[in-house]
């Protein structure tokens, strides 16, 4: 099993400094929708300049380099213990190189570890085994605290919103979450919505679904229609970029269904900021490919 630490450092650099193409395209389209001279348009223009500059200079798109969330699909026979060590070492190095901000703060003692490592849970690494001849893939998402803080979880039915245990109810609570978030999650945002699960698995799934490409729809036509409807309806609220007031508040919505207990019906909304940093690296034999 080869040492991939350097390759993972490069992978982290790309994730933190080089916004994915599909996201940038949506942001470019969003600029044109805002009135010339408006604060919203100014915000979007600055956002795009920043994306370009970060890529050119290899500097973080956002200073909040977030919680590093890794999903690793490893071929049968690979050591997850060693992979974990490589990822952690790479993260320390990426932090020294200023691709990442030291972001792990001990919640009881209020102490920043200084190197982005904190206990077993920071960074967050999920492992899944695949066939021995399949490639190793590592996906990484950097999700900042501003947008994480405006995420929301609802237990349905919700009487205040008149939301029952069905897709109509899901629609209502998601719209409520968008309205409550205002611009604080760095709008325009992307919504990851999980329906079902328990509180923990539901929130986790609402982030996992954000690894998909922008515009990718749920296989179920009714759910897919709700995804599009939510994006459109969210944009009628006029919150706009940064909450300045404007046309684009949400650029995409992704919904995933899970199994739930008969007693529970959770809807979890993960709000991802416009700086939607997620990338994938694939290792097969000697070849390393970054998406």
């Amino acid at each position: 099993m080869r040492d991939l630490t350097n390759e993972i450092v490069e992978f982290i650099r790309r994730t933190s400094t080089d916004l994915p193409q599909d996201v940038e395209e949506r942001l470019k389209a969003a600029v044109e929708k805002e009135a010339p001279g408006s604060a919203a348009r100014g915000a979007m223009e600055t956002v795009l300049k920043n994306v370009e500059l970060s890529r050119k200079n290899s500097t973080p798109i956002c200073q909040d380099t977030g919680t590093p969330i890794f999903y690793v699909h490893y071929p049968e026979g690979w050591s997850t213990r060693k992979l974990r060590e490589m990822i952690r070492n790479a993260l320390v190095e990426a932090t020294q190189k200023s691709y990442m901000r030291p972001n792990a703060v001990d919640a009881i003692y209020d102490k920043n570890s200084g190197n982005n490592l904190g206990g077993e849970e920071f960074p967050s690494i999920h492992f899944e085994e695949v066939d021995a001849d399949a490639p190793l893939t590592i996906e990484l998402m950097l999700k900042g605290g501003g947008c994480e803080n405006v995420g929301a979880q609802y237990s349905l039915p919700n009487n205040g919103l008149g939301a029952g245990r069905d897709l109509a109810g899901v629609r209502k609570v998601v719209l409520d979450a968008v309205q409550k978030a205002q611009g604080q999650g760095c709008a325009p945002g992307i919504l990851g919505v999980a329906i079902g699960g328990d509180r923990g698995s539901s929130y986790a799934k609402s982030k996992e679904v954000l690894f998909g490409k922008i515009g990718e729809r749920n296989n179920d036509p009714e759910v897919a229609a709700l995804e599009e409807r939510l994006t459109d309806e969210a944009n009628t609220m006029g919150i706009g970029p940064m909450g300045f007031g404007g046309q684009t508040t949400v650029i995409d919505t992704k919904i995933v269904g899970m199994h739930r207990l008969p007693a529970s019906y959770f809807v979890s909304v993960s709000y991802m900021c416009w700086a939607y940093r997620r990338r994938k690296m694939t290792v097969q034999g000697d070849e390393v490919v970054y998406d």
Partner: peptide, 10 residues
């Protein structure tokens, strides 16, 4: 502008 970190650092 939230997230415009490289730009503002300049």
């Amino acid at each position: 502008i939230g997230g415009a970190a490289s730009f503002i650092a300049q």
